[in-house]
Protein backbone atom coordinates (compact mmCIF):
# COMPACT_ATOMS: atom_id res chain seq x y z
CA UNK A 1 0.00 0.00 0.00
CA UNK A 2 1.43 3.33 -1.04
CA UNK A 3 -0.91 6.23 -0.41
CA UNK A 4 1.80 8.79 -1.00
CA UNK A 5 1.37 8.21 -4.76
CA UNK A 6 -1.98 9.96 -4.56
CA UNK A 7 -1.63 13.67 -5.25
CA UNK A 8 -4.62 15.49 -3.73
CA UNK A 9 -4.47 18.40 -6.18
CA UNK A 10 -4.44 16.16 -9.22
CA UNK A 11 -7.15 14.10 -7.58
CA UNK A 12 -9.47 17.07 -7.23
CA UNK A 13 -8.69 18.28 -10.73
CA UNK A 14 -9.44 14.79 -11.99
CA UNK A 15 -12.68 14.44 -10.05
CA UNK A 16 -14.07 17.63 -11.56
CA UNK A 17 -13.33 16.27 -15.00
CA UNK A 18 -14.69 12.84 -14.14
CA UNK A 19 -17.96 14.35 -12.93
CA UNK A 20 -18.59 16.44 -16.02
CA UNK A 21 -20.47 13.87 -18.15
CA UNK A 22 -22.83 13.06 -15.29
CA UNK A 23 -23.28 16.71 -14.42
CA UNK A 24 -24.18 17.61 -18.00
CA UNK A 25 -26.58 14.73 -18.53
CA UNK A 26 -28.08 15.31 -15.09
CA UNK A 27 -28.66 19.03 -15.53
CA UNK A 28 -30.45 18.35 -18.80
CA UNK A 29 -32.64 15.68 -17.25
CA UNK A 30 -33.34 17.98 -14.30
CA UNK A 31 -34.87 20.54 -16.65
CA UNK A 32 -36.86 17.81 -18.41
CA UNK A 33 -38.25 16.48 -15.15
CA UNK A 34 -38.96 19.96 -13.84
CA UNK A 35 -41.17 20.34 -16.93
CA UNK A 36 -43.01 17.20 -15.80
CA UNK A 37 -41.50 14.69 -18.21
CA UNK A 38 -39.71 11.53 -17.13
CA UNK A 39 -37.27 10.60 -19.88
CA UNK A 40 -35.50 7.37 -18.97
CA UNK A 41 -33.57 7.47 -22.22
CA UNK A 42 -30.62 9.46 -20.82
CA UNK A 43 -28.19 6.56 -21.33
CA UNK A 44 -29.31 6.17 -24.94
CA UNK A 45 -29.05 9.88 -25.67
CA UNK A 46 -25.64 10.01 -24.03
CA UNK A 47 -24.17 7.23 -26.08
CA UNK A 48 -25.76 8.54 -29.29
CA UNK A 49 -24.18 11.88 -28.52
CA UNK A 50 -20.89 10.11 -27.84
CA UNK A 51 -20.76 8.45 -31.26
CA UNK A 52 -22.19 11.43 -33.19
CA UNK A 53 -19.64 13.67 -31.55
CA UNK A 54 -16.86 11.20 -32.29
CA UNK A 55 -17.82 10.91 -35.96
CA UNK A 56 -18.16 14.67 -36.39
CA UNK A 57 -14.84 15.31 -34.68
CA UNK A 58 -13.09 12.57 -36.67
CA UNK A 59 -14.49 13.83 -39.98
CA UNK A 60 -13.53 17.45 -39.43
CA UNK A 61 -10.59 17.04 -37.15
CA UNK A 62 -12.13 19.61 -34.85
CA UNK A 63 -13.26 18.73 -31.35
CA UNK A 64 -15.57 21.76 -31.22
CA UNK A 65 -17.49 20.50 -34.23
CA UNK A 66 -17.56 17.15 -32.46
CA UNK A 67 -19.22 18.57 -29.36
CA UNK A 68 -21.72 20.38 -31.54
CA UNK A 69 -22.48 17.17 -33.40
CA UNK A 70 -22.94 15.37 -30.10
CA UNK A 71 -25.48 17.92 -28.90
CA UNK A 72 -27.37 17.65 -32.19
CA UNK A 73 -27.31 13.86 -32.05
CA UNK A 74 -28.60 13.72 -28.49
CA UNK A 75 -31.25 16.32 -29.27
CA UNK A 76 -32.33 14.37 -32.35
CA UNK A 77 -32.88 11.22 -30.34
CA UNK A 78 -34.72 13.22 -27.69
CA UNK A 79 -36.97 14.62 -30.40
CA UNK A 80 -38.15 11.09 -31.16
CA UNK A 81 -39.07 10.73 -27.51
CA UNK A 82 -40.80 14.12 -27.56
CA UNK A 83 -42.98 13.21 -30.53
CA UNK A 84 -43.87 9.82 -29.08
CA UNK A 85 -44.60 10.97 -25.55
CA UNK A 86 -46.10 14.42 -26.18
CA UNK A 87 -47.98 14.00 -29.44
CA UNK A 88 -48.71 10.28 -29.61
CA UNK A 89 -49.16 10.16 -25.81
CA UNK A 90 -47.16 7.00 -25.24
CA UNK A 91 -46.37 6.01 -21.68
CA UNK A 92 -43.13 7.75 -20.78
CA UNK A 93 -41.48 4.91 -18.86
CA UNK A 94 -41.36 2.26 -21.61
CA UNK A 95 -40.74 4.94 -24.24
CA UNK A 96 -37.70 6.15 -22.34
CA UNK A 97 -36.44 2.61 -21.77
CA UNK A 98 -36.93 1.95 -25.47
CA UNK A 99 -34.95 5.07 -26.27
CA UNK A 100 -32.04 3.78 -24.22
CA UNK A 101 -32.07 0.41 -25.97
CA UNK A 102 -32.39 2.10 -29.35
CA UNK A 103 -29.56 4.52 -28.60
CA UNK A 104 -27.22 1.71 -27.50
CA UNK A 105 -27.93 -0.22 -30.68
CA UNK A 106 -27.69 2.82 -32.93
CA UNK A 107 -24.37 3.92 -31.48
CA UNK A 108 -22.97 0.44 -31.92
CA UNK A 109 -24.07 0.44 -35.56
CA UNK A 110 -22.75 3.91 -36.30
CA UNK A 111 -19.51 3.20 -34.49
CA UNK A 112 -18.61 -0.02 -36.36
CA UNK A 113 -15.91 1.63 -38.44
CA UNK A 114 -14.54 3.75 -35.64
CA UNK A 115 -13.66 1.16 -33.00
CA UNK A 116 -10.22 1.75 -31.61
CA UNK A 117 -9.60 4.98 -33.54
CA UNK A 118 -8.28 7.84 -31.51
CA UNK A 119 -10.21 11.12 -31.30
CA UNK A 120 -8.70 14.53 -32.07
CA UNK A 121 -7.25 16.01 -28.92
CA UNK A 122 -9.14 18.58 -26.94
CA UNK A 123 -6.83 21.24 -25.64
CA UNK A 124 -7.22 22.48 -22.12
CA UNK A 125 -7.84 26.11 -21.42
CA UNK A 126 -4.72 27.21 -19.62
CA UNK A 127 -5.47 30.56 -18.05
CA UNK A 128 -2.10 32.37 -18.00
CA UNK A 129 -0.76 33.25 -14.56
CA UNK A 130 -3.83 31.96 -12.73
CA UNK A 131 -3.07 28.35 -13.62
CA UNK A 132 0.32 28.76 -11.95
CA UNK A 133 -1.28 29.42 -8.57
CA UNK A 134 -0.36 26.48 -6.38
CA UNK A 135 -3.23 24.05 -5.61
CA UNK A 136 -6.03 26.22 -7.01
CA UNK A 137 -4.37 26.76 -10.36
CA UNK A 138 -4.47 23.18 -11.65
CA UNK A 139 -7.93 22.63 -10.14
CA UNK A 140 -9.73 25.73 -11.34
CA UNK A 141 -7.77 27.23 -14.21
CA UNK A 142 -6.41 24.34 -16.19
CA UNK A 143 -9.39 22.34 -17.41
CA UNK A 144 -10.93 21.73 -20.80
CA UNK A 145 -13.77 23.96 -22.03
CA UNK A 146 -16.52 21.39 -21.43
CA UNK A 147 -15.77 21.32 -17.72
CA UNK A 148 -16.39 25.06 -17.58
CA UNK A 149 -19.44 24.59 -19.76
CA UNK A 150 -20.85 22.08 -17.26
CA UNK A 151 -20.37 24.43 -14.34
CA UNK A 152 -21.73 27.36 -16.34
CA UNK A 153 -24.74 25.30 -17.36
CA UNK A 154 -25.55 24.49 -13.75
CA UNK A 155 -25.50 28.16 -12.80
CA UNK A 156 -27.50 29.08 -15.90
CA UNK A 157 -30.15 26.44 -15.21
CA UNK A 158 -30.44 27.57 -11.62
CA UNK A 159 -30.87 31.16 -12.75
CA UNK A 160 -33.35 30.15 -15.44
CA UNK A 161 -35.51 28.06 -13.09
CA UNK A 162 -35.61 30.40 -10.13
CA UNK A 163 -34.98 33.85 -11.51
CA UNK A 164 -36.59 34.02 -14.94
CA UNK A 165 -40.23 34.11 -15.92
CA UNK A 166 -39.76 31.35 -18.50
CA UNK A 167 -38.31 29.16 -15.79
CA UNK A 168 -41.29 29.87 -13.58
CA UNK A 169 -43.59 28.84 -16.42
CA UNK A 170 -41.57 25.68 -16.97
CA UNK A 171 -41.84 24.76 -13.28
CA UNK A 172 -45.55 25.53 -13.38
CA UNK A 173 -46.04 23.20 -16.33
CA UNK A 174 -44.24 20.44 -14.45
CA UNK A 175 -46.16 21.07 -11.25
CA UNK A 176 -49.71 21.08 -12.63
CA UNK A 177 -50.11 20.82 -16.36
CA UNK A 178 -53.88 21.20 -16.33
CA UNK A 179 -53.67 24.49 -14.47
CA UNK A 180 -50.89 25.73 -16.73
CA UNK A 181 -53.01 24.89 -19.75
CA UNK A 182 -56.02 26.66 -18.24
CA UNK A 183 -53.88 29.77 -17.86
CA UNK A 184 -53.01 29.55 -21.53
CA UNK A 185 -49.48 28.17 -21.44
CA UNK A 186 -48.44 25.83 -24.22
CA UNK A 187 -47.72 22.72 -22.20
CA UNK A 188 -46.68 20.51 -25.09
CA UNK A 189 -44.42 23.03 -26.72
CA UNK A 190 -42.66 23.85 -23.45
CA UNK A 191 -42.16 20.17 -22.76
CA UNK A 192 -40.81 19.45 -26.22
CA UNK A 193 -38.34 22.28 -25.74
CA UNK A 194 -37.24 20.88 -22.38
CA UNK A 195 -36.87 17.36 -23.78
CA UNK A 196 -34.72 18.57 -26.67
CA UNK A 197 -32.55 20.60 -24.29
CA UNK A 198 -32.18 17.52 -22.09
CA UNK A 199 -31.15 15.47 -25.12
CA UNK A 200 -28.54 18.01 -26.18
CA UNK A 201 -27.06 18.07 -22.68
CA UNK A 202 -26.99 14.28 -22.50
CA UNK A 203 -25.33 14.12 -25.92
CA UNK A 204 -22.72 16.63 -24.84
CA UNK A 205 -22.09 14.63 -21.69
CA UNK A 206 -21.67 11.49 -23.76
CA UNK A 207 -19.19 13.10 -26.13
CA UNK A 208 -17.09 14.19 -23.17
CA UNK A 209 -16.50 10.49 -22.59
CA UNK A 210 -15.66 9.63 -26.20
CA UNK A 211 -13.61 12.75 -26.98
CA UNK A 212 -11.93 13.64 -23.69
CA UNK A 213 -12.08 10.95 -21.01
CA UNK A 214 -11.39 7.84 -23.05
CA UNK A 215 -10.68 9.49 -26.31
CA UNK A 216 -11.13 6.27 -28.27
CA UNK A 217 -14.40 4.90 -29.51
CA UNK A 218 -15.51 1.66 -27.87
CA UNK A 219 -18.93 0.09 -27.77
CA UNK A 220 -20.98 0.84 -24.67
CA UNK A 221 -18.65 3.67 -23.73
CA UNK A 222 -21.16 5.35 -21.39
CA UNK A 223 -21.25 2.25 -19.16
CA UNK A 224 -24.30 3.27 -17.12
CA UNK A 225 -23.41 6.94 -16.61
CA UNK A 226 -26.85 7.91 -17.91
CA UNK A 227 -28.53 5.86 -15.22
CA UNK A 228 -26.36 7.45 -12.56
CA UNK A 229 -27.34 10.89 -13.87
CA UNK A 230 -31.02 9.93 -13.65
CA UNK A 231 -30.64 8.70 -10.10
CA UNK A 232 -28.74 11.79 -9.00
CA UNK A 233 -31.51 14.06 -10.34
CA UNK A 234 -33.98 12.33 -8.04
CA UNK A 235 -31.70 12.15 -5.02
CA UNK A 236 -30.78 15.81 -5.49
CA UNK A 237 -34.43 16.67 -5.10
CA UNK A 238 -34.59 18.28 -8.55
CA UNK A 239 -32.29 21.12 -7.42
CA UNK A 240 -29.33 22.19 -9.60
CA UNK A 241 -26.71 22.79 -6.89
CA UNK A 242 -27.45 19.54 -5.14
CA UNK A 243 -27.18 17.86 -8.50
CA UNK A 244 -23.72 19.36 -8.92
CA UNK A 245 -22.77 18.17 -5.45
CA UNK A 246 -24.05 14.69 -6.24
CA UNK A 247 -22.18 14.55 -9.53
CA UNK A 248 -18.91 15.71 -7.93
CA UNK A 249 -19.34 13.29 -5.09
CA UNK A 250 -19.84 10.42 -7.48
CA UNK A 251 -16.99 11.52 -9.70
CA UNK A 252 -14.79 12.12 -6.66
CA UNK A 253 -15.30 8.73 -5.09
CA UNK A 254 -14.84 7.10 -8.49
CA UNK A 255 -11.45 8.75 -8.98
CA UNK A 256 -10.47 8.15 -5.39
CA UNK A 257 -11.29 4.48 -5.44
CA UNK A 258 -9.31 4.03 -8.66
CA UNK A 259 -6.37 5.71 -6.98
CA UNK A 260 -6.82 3.50 -3.94
CA UNK A 261 -6.91 0.41 -6.11
CA UNK A 262 -3.73 1.53 -7.83
CA UNK A 263 -2.17 2.09 -4.41
CA UNK A 264 -3.00 -1.51 -3.46
CA UNK A 265 -5.14 -0.68 -0.46
CA UNK A 266 -6.03 -3.96 1.22
CA UNK A 267 -9.77 -3.66 0.52
CA UNK A 268 -11.20 -6.00 -2.10
CA UNK A 269 -11.56 -4.18 -5.43
CA UNK A 270 -15.26 -5.09 -5.56
CA UNK A 271 -15.96 -3.00 -2.48
CA UNK A 272 -14.00 -0.08 -3.86
CA UNK A 273 -15.82 -0.32 -7.16
CA UNK A 274 -19.20 -0.12 -5.51
CA UNK A 275 -18.19 2.72 -3.20
CA UNK A 276 -19.11 5.63 -5.54
CA UNK A 277 -22.67 4.36 -5.83
CA UNK A 278 -23.10 3.70 -2.14
CA UNK A 279 -21.53 7.00 -1.07
CA UNK A 280 -23.56 9.10 -3.51
CA UNK A 281 -26.87 7.53 -2.61
CA UNK A 282 -26.12 7.64 1.11
CA UNK A 283 -25.16 11.30 1.19
CA UNK A 284 -28.02 12.52 -0.97
CA UNK A 285 -30.57 10.46 0.93
CA UNK A 286 -29.26 11.78 4.25
CA UNK A 287 -29.59 15.33 2.96
CA UNK A 288 -33.24 14.44 2.41
CA UNK A 289 -34.53 15.57 -0.87
CA UNK A 290 -37.29 17.75 -2.24
CA UNK A 291 -40.63 16.97 -3.68
CA UNK A 292 -41.10 15.60 -7.17
CA UNK A 293 -42.81 17.89 -9.69
CA UNK A 294 -46.56 17.28 -9.41
CA UNK A 295 -47.15 16.23 -13.01
CA UNK A 296 -43.95 14.18 -13.39
CA UNK A 297 -44.39 11.36 -15.86
CA UNK A 298 -48.08 12.01 -16.53
CA UNK A 299 -49.25 12.35 -20.10
CA UNK A 300 -50.98 15.58 -20.91
CA UNK A 301 -53.90 15.78 -23.28
CA UNK A 302 -55.81 19.03 -23.62
CA UNK A 303 -59.43 17.97 -23.39
CA UNK A 304 -60.85 21.53 -23.43
Amino acid sequence: MDLSAINPVLLIAALIAASTPILLAGIGELVVERAGVLNLGVEGMMITGAICGFIAAHATGSASVGFLGAAVGGAGLALIFAVLSQYLLTNQVPTGLGLTLFGLGLSSLLGQDYAGIKAPTVSKIDVPLLSDIPVLGPILFNQDPIVYLGIGMTVAVWWFLYRSRRGLILRAVGENHEAAHALGYKVRLIRVGAIVFGGACAGLGGSYLSLVRVPIWTDGITAGYGWIALAIVVFAGWRPYRLMLGAYLFGGVTVLQLNLQAANVPIPAEYLSMSPYVATILVLVLMSSGRAPGSLGRAFHAST
Binding site: A172, E175, A179, A180, A182, L183, R291, P293, G294
Partner: peptide, 11 residues
Protein backbone atom coordinates in the same frame (compact mmCIF):
# COMPACT_ATOMS: atom_id res chain seq x y z
CA UNK B 1 -61.67 32.14 -11.17
CA UNK B 2 -61.76 28.44 -11.88
CA UNK B 3 -63.95 25.84 -10.26
CA UNK B 4 -61.08 23.48 -9.71
CA UNK B 5 -58.42 25.88 -8.63
CA UNK B 6 -55.78 26.40 -11.25
CA UNK B 7 -53.01 26.78 -8.70
CA UNK B 8 -49.57 25.28 -8.36
CA UNK B 9 -49.03 23.69 -4.96
CA UNK B 10 -45.25 23.82 -4.92
CA UNK B 11 -45.05 27.51 -5.78
Amino acid sequence: VFQHFSLFDAL
